[in-house]
Design a binder for these strands. Structure first.
Lengths: 98, 98
DNA sequence: GTAAAACATCAACGAACGTTGATACAAGGA
DNA sequence: TCCTTGTATCAACGTTCGTTGATGTTTTAC
């Protein structure tokens, strides 16, 4: 879970995720969209892939990247479970902490 | 949005978020739960607060931290909007990319 | 086989980040 | 007032991370 959030918690990678929400893209298309050097993109796509957020598929000379819906759904449900669903009752505490 | 994900994309801070899902906690309580130095906790709580993921409330000598449900919900809906909801049709592409 | 296009990998660098220990601040009790 | 507890801030340090430019690999076209 941590790895998933780390993958998305970077500007270039978050933009990649947003671009891929329209469907799969090859690296050279993303290069144009993001105005980023090719090696930089490769680096970030690898991070996303290692975290399971995207998958790739080769077709001839091109490698197409796309989102892995399950990964995004996992993050969603984590946040849903963590999010307080009600107001907590006040708690009585001792005078000393440690 | 990026800042929200960055806040959560760190081990200590992710654990803090999980602990706070049970309700508010003061720093010294988290110190015990996480076995972390006080200045370290202060550092991470500040990051979470700056990103709007947690809020704090002073009560006497103690400062209680709690989750901000709206922030978590924002992340959730971002992931929901990004996540592909259907299979994409194959796309015809040119031979050259750039 | 050669050349070119698409992509991956690597090493080197600088910048951002987390940790630690010391110090400062705030509040309550004696 | 002075001391103690809870918390925040700071500077110094080491580590991780993203960028860049060069090189390697795979595939297609000629």
């Amino acid at each position: 879970m941590l790895a998933r959030f780390q993958a998305v918690a970077e500007e270039t990678r978050l933009r990649i995720v947003q671009l891929l929400s329209d469907g799969e893209r090859c690296v050279c298309e993303l290069q144009g969209d993001l105005d980023a050097a090719q090696s930089r993109l490769s680096f970030h796509l690898r991070k996303l892939k290692e975290a399971g957020v995207v998958s790739d598929r080769r077709d001839g000379r091109w490698v197409y990247y796309s989102l892995v819906p399950e990964a995004l759904e996992e993050m969603r449900s984590f946040l849903g479970e963590v999010k307080p669903r009600h107001v907590w009752l006040p708690v009585v505490r001792q005078d000393e902490c440690g």
